[in-house]
Amino acid sequence: MVEQWKHVFKLDPEKALDDASLEALCLSGTDAILVGGSSGVTYDDTVDLLARLRRYETPCALEITTLEAIVPGFDAYLVPIALNAGDPAYLVGQHVEALKRYGHLLPKDGLVAAEGYIIANPDCTAARVAGVKPVDEADIVAYARFADRLLRLPIVYLEYSGTFGDLGAAAKAKAALGNAKLFYGGGIDGGEKAAAAARVADTIVVGNVIYRSLADALDTVKAAKAAKAETA
């Protein structure tokens, strides 16, 4: 499933989104809806959003960023590992704790995948929470190789969170990968940036613009798919 995604909308359960907007996103042609946030995500908010998403056929995945918001019923579960985290809890500590609590609930026939996160914007919430170490282009490529070649992770997620990042670094990270897919997220606020990012990454993740301009968010779907078709 994940390997075929080209465009994903990311929804934060903590942020308000009316039913008409949610319907437009789900029927836009996006490949999936990813649910998650860096802070403030609760079980109740996540359950409520999942119930609303289940009105539509669009696949929905939960990105597990807090143990308190692990909710059954999603099509897939993505587990972020912050590769450049200064706090080791975000490398392995919270993951072990999650398995101690919920390991017996892991679906044997469902999709659970780890994401090797490279958090490249030191000013974003995720960076502050995980105490990340700043990265340059060489670091990004090295972390990508580490995730792909040594950890054998299926996803490398280059996260600029709110800022449109260095696509040159993204392209070099992509070139360094063998089997992993490159996800890119951050600062995609319309069709032009969606197309540019889609030409480099396997999958683009569009989030913050949803809550500022739904029309601009919807434009990213066709732009990304068109850019992918050009590079196929």
Rank of each mutant, 00 (worst) to 15 (best):
L11Y: 09
L11I: 12
D12E: 12
P13Q: 12
E14G: 07
K15G: 03
L17I: 14
D19H: 03
D19S: 08
A20N: 12
S21F: 06
E23P: 08
L27D: 14
S28T: 04
S28V: 09
G29H: 03
G29Q: 07
I33T: 07
I33G: 06
V35E: 07
V35Q: 05
G36F: 13
G36S: 12
S38P: 10
S38T: 15
S38L: 11
S39H: 13
G40N: 04
T42Q: 10
T42N: 10
Y43V: 01
Y43M: 07
D44V: 14
D45N: 14
D45R: 13
D45L: 04
D45C: 05
T46A: 02
V47G: 05
V47D: 08
V47W: 03
V47A: 09
D48S: 12
D48C: 05
D48I: 05
L50T: 01
A51C: 11
R52S: 10
L53G: 01
R54V: 05
R54C: 11
P59M: 08
P59I: 07
C60W: 10
C60T: 14
A61Y: 11
L62W: 06
E63G: 08
E63Q: 13
T65C: 12
T65M: 13
T65Q: 10
E68D: 15
E68S: 15
A69V: 12
I70K: 09
I70Y: 15
G73F: 00
F74I: 00
F74M: 03
D75R: 01
A76E: 13
A76M: 13
V79P: 11
V79T: 14
P80E: 12
A82D: 02
A82R: 03
A82K: 08
L83A: 05
N84C: 11
A85D: 02
G86D: 07
D87E: 05
P88L: 01
P88D: 01
A89E: 06
A89K: 09
Y90V: 01
Y90I: 01
V92P: 00
G93F: 03
G93P: 05
Q94P: 01
Q94L: 14
H95I: 14
H95A: 10
A98T: 08
L99Q: 02
L99N: 01
K100W: 04
K100E: 15
R101C: 03
R101I: 02
Y102L: 12
Y102I: 00
G103Q: 03
H104W: 02
H104Q: 11
H104G: 04
L105H: 12
L105N: 12
P107L: 00
D109A: 12
G110T: 09
G110H: 04
L111Q: 14
L111H: 13
V112P: 05
A113R: 13
G116T: 01
Y117G: 01
I118M: 00
I119F: 06
N121V: 10
D123Q: 14
D123C: 08
C124V: 06
T125E: 14
R128T: 13
R128E: 14
V129A: 08
A130R: 10
A130S: 15
K133P: 00
K133Y: 06
P134N: 09
V135K: 05
V135P: 08
V135C: 04
V135A: 05
V135I: 03
V135N: 09
D136S: 07
D136E: 10
E137K: 04
A138T: 13
A138Q: 15
A138L: 12
D139Q: 11
